[in-house]
Structure formats: C-alpha cells, structure tokens
Amino acid sequence: MSALSYAHGTSATTLLGDTIGANLDRAVAAWPDREALVDVPSGRRWTYAQFSADVDELAYALLATGIARGDRVGIWAVNCPEWVLVQYATARVGAVMVNINPAYRTHEVEYVLQQAGISLLFASLSHKTSDYRAMVEQVRGRCPQLRETVYIGDPSWDALIGRGTPDLYEELWIRKSELSCDDPINIQYTSGTTGFPKGATLSHHNILNNGYFVGESIAYSEQDRICIPVPFYHCFGMVMGNLAATSHGACMVIPAPSFDPAATLRAVQDERCTSLYGVPTMFIAELNLPGFATYDLSSLRTGIMAGSPCP
C-alpha cells in the first residue's frame, strides 16, 4: 500500500495533521468562553463553547438525515452564521461541503447539483433578485441525487435541527474517529468564464493548513477579531477567514449578508475588529464613503487585500 507524503518550504512550524473538527475541539478546549462568531445584522453571538454545541447539534441532524461519510452537501447562501455552522458540521461528519456561488443563475446551479452529486442542499431564501426556492424547484426534477433542500431562515431549517438528538453522541464520536485529515471535505468551483464551472476537491489537510498559515503570517491569536465582508463561498471567506480564525481562537465577525461598505466599517468600529479583509474595490468603496473619517477604526492592526471575486 502506498503512503502519502508531504513537503513544505523552510519553516519552524510544522503542518497540522488535524481534521477540521479536531482542530475546532482544540480551540474550544483552550478558549471556551471567548467569542467565536458574531453576526452583526441579527445581533447573534457565540462563544467557542456555544459554537461547538451548535455545530454538534447540526452534525446530529445530518447523521439523523442519513448523511454518510463522503456524501455531498451543498451550501448556496449569502454570508450568515448558518453558513459557518454547515461548514464545521459537515467536517465533523465527514461529508463533502460543496460551495455554490450565491450569484449563480438557474442553469449554473443545476450543473453543480448534478456534477457534484449533491444529496442535501442548504440555501438562502433569496439574494438580490434571485428567488432560490423557485430556482431549486425549477431544476430539482433533473437532479435525481438531490433528496432534500433546507432553507436558512425557514421552518425547514428548524425541522432538520429537530431530527438530531444528543443520543446520537456515540454515533458522532465513532464517525469523527474514523476520519482522516486526508479525506476530501470541500469542493470549490471556478467562475466558469471559459465554460461550465470546474470543481476542485480539497481535503481537511489542504484548507485547514491554508487557513492556519495565513493566520500565522499575520500573527493571529485569541485576541483577534476578524471582520469578514468577503463571501464565504470563496476560499477568501471560508478558509482565510473562518479557518484562520478558529485555528487561532480568534473571532469571526459577519458585517452583512453581502458586501456593504458602511456596514463593514460600522462592524469594525462597534466590534473593535483587529483585522479586515477585502478586495481592492471593496476597500476603495469604504474609503470613498461620505463620512469615512468619522468611523473609529483604531482597533485595526492588520488585514488582507486580495484579488478574489465578489458577487
């Protein structure tokens, strides 16, 4: 049997060998009472202990729904706490989370549902002019592997959560013990500018180390609070944002469901964020806001500007 091998550049810091779930457990054990996630629009907040409990609650629900290791679970949603819960709960049960761009049109969603073999889809109710429920109903007859769609902010979300019960603790523990950091855990799609979108399959090892070393490069610690206005469906949001945060005990701050320059600056000010992410056009929009100088941004010490796409 062949064995996997790893190589990386000169560094005193070794690669992480954790699964995403195990790495989250380390953060929870170290910083249970520190804030892990803040959703500014709804005012909801989670400490690491509370966040882990809600991740487990969703993981129980996934097990109760019959999600097996390696099953494809789609997430087609704007930035919201439920997006983050799905990210970590699918990792806990070994399902492969498939990121779907909120800006996709019906034919693109149909392609991804079919091509990735998604069996369970989590979706927002709407985004801008898109009615997600109507769009899913339009294509689901041509997507035979799609068994169920759960809408965030809809009774179907509560119904799903209600299926999971703590008596599934042992089953979840067994499932987690069977997982390897080399297991596929995420599929991300290209923009498809030269044809249909193309999916790249990534492992715990791939994306956890990506997030961890990004956090190391800008010296994250449990004291940091990261304002994340970039989309979660892209690696900028879910990896450089979320995984960089949880691998260091930092806090993820969601300023708005999609980019809003004023909401972003208010979140930095009110939540005393130490780090801010964005693409150049986002930073330009913030700098050009009337009254920009009135925002107290003195808490910022770092951040990332990158060329990632933003819907």
Rank of each mutant, 00 (worst) to 15 (best):
H8Q: 13
Q223Y: 01
W76V: 00
Y295L: 02
S119C: 03
L37T: 07
L37P: 06
A3D: 13
I174K: 13
M252L: 14
G192V: 08
M282V: 07
T129A: 14
Y151L: 06
G94V: 03
G74T: 03
I67A: 09
F283A: 01
C235H: 00
L146P: 15
A64V: 02
N209F: 10
E286T: 10
G215V: 05
A89Y: 03
A59Q: 15
V214W: 00
A306K: 00
A256W: 06
I67H: 05
V38K: 01
C80M: 09
I152M: 10
T246D: 14
Q138I: 11
E222S: 15
C227N: 01
P144R: 04
L168N: 04
Q115K: 15
F213W: 13
R163T: 01
H204G: 14
R92I: 04
Y104R: 11
P255R: 02
P280W: 03
D167A: 09
T294D: 15
T281W: 07
M305R: 09
V279T: 14
S5C: 03
S299V: 10
Y48A: 13
D71P: 03
N23V: 14
M97W: 11
Y151Q: 07
S177F: 01
I118L: 10
C273I: 01
N23F: 04
Y111K: 13
L63V: 09
Y151I: 04
A68P: 02
W83K: 09
N79L: 01
L62Y: 00
E271F: 03
R44L: 12
F213I: 10
P41F: 04
E82F: 02
V112P: 12
Y88G: 07
L265W: 03
H107K: 12
T194A: 09
A245T: 04
A244G: 10
L85W: 04
G9Y: 10
H205D: 08
A285R: 07
T264P: 00
D39T: 06
W46Q: 07
A95L: 12
L16E: 07
G195K: 05
V38N: 05
N79P: 00
C227K: 00
R34I: 12
T246W: 12
A3N: 14
V150T: 04
A285Y: 11
L37V: 05
T302R: 14
L146K: 11
T264W: 01
T294H: 12
H234R: 11
Y295Q: 06
H127N: 10
C227M: 02
W173Q: 14
A36L: 02
T10W: 04
R92Q: 13
Y6N: 04
N79Y: 06
S180G: 07
H234G: 08
P311H: 07
S5M: 01
N242G: 12
P32K: 08
V109K: 11
A250I: 11
A89G: 07
L208Q: 05
G74H: 06
I174L: 12
S156M: 08
H8E: 13
D39I: 04
V96P: 05
A27W: 04
I75V: 14
D56R: 10
V73Y: 05
E108N: 13
A285T: 09
N99M: 14
A306L: 02
A53P: 14
N209W: 03
C143Y: 13
S126C: 07
D154N: 07
V93M: 03
R175K: 08
G237Q: 01
V268L: 08
G291M: 02
D131M: 13
R44N: 12
Y104W: 14
